[in-house]
């Protein structure tokens, strides 16, 4: 009986886990924090509104609701700040990778020759900081492909052009 790992005879191919990944732009942390704060404030407003109009009869639990939302808010901010350092990406000669996660780590690599199209988009807050996100799509159920948030607009544009050249060439 043979060991499957004997099939890996080429020893010279690049090991992605030894390559240093790049950090995304520091300004993106601000975008994340602003976004979370915005969601938090709208939740607060919703609870205030419910209490004021007394729609659901929530008087007794309102305090706990506020507390719960606030704890959730602080927890999310905490996780995002820690996790921000773990958001890294890497563009190699033939593929693009992204990794993230503190308690749930994830790393994805998409080879260029499987990419169907590349997209750059900018949210309103990202636009203010001149940031953009880069998404690549492969065939099939594309919901689970790769998206790098928090790149400088120019950098995203460069990567997009690089990938497009690689696909066509």
């Amino acid at each position: 009986m043979l060991d499957s790992f004997q099939n890996i005879v080429v020893s010279s191919f690049p090991n992605i886990l030894e390559v240093e990944f790049k950090y995304i732009n520091r300004k993106y942390l601000k975008v994340i924090l602003i976004n979370i704060t915005f969601v938090y404030l709208s939740l607060l407003a919703a609870v205030f509104f419910l209490e004021y109009k007394n729609i659901l009869g929530l008087e007794e639990v309102t305090f706990w609701l506020f507390l719960f939302i606030t704890i959730l808010f602080i927890y999310t901010i905490f996780i995002k700040i820690i996790g921000f350092k773990r958001r890294k990406f890497l563009v190699r000669e033939k593929d693009i990778s992204y990794k993230k996660g503190v308690f749930y780590k994830k790393i994805t690599t998409v080879p260029f020759n499987r990419i169907q199209h590349v997209e750059i988009d900018q949210g309103p807050i990202s636009r203010f900081f001149n940031l953009a996100s880069l998404s690549v799509f492969t065939a099939g159920d594309s919901s689970d492909d790769l998206k790098v948030n928090g790149l400088l607009k120019d950098e995203a544009q460069q990567i997009k052009e690089y990938i497009s050249n690689q696909i066509d060439g």
């Binding site: 780590k105 994830k106 998409v110």
Partner: peptide, 29 residues
């Protein structure tokens, strides 16, 4: 035939040096 590859690891898995590997193909994971 693989479209992209992923590695996923929860906190508990990382204490055991265990990891999930996911192959995304054009017809599913």
């Amino acid at each position: 035939k693989v479209q992209n590859v992923k590695l996923k690891q929860t906190f508990f898995q990382s204490t055991q040096n265990i990891i999930d590997i996911v192959f995304q193909t054009a017809s599913g994971k």
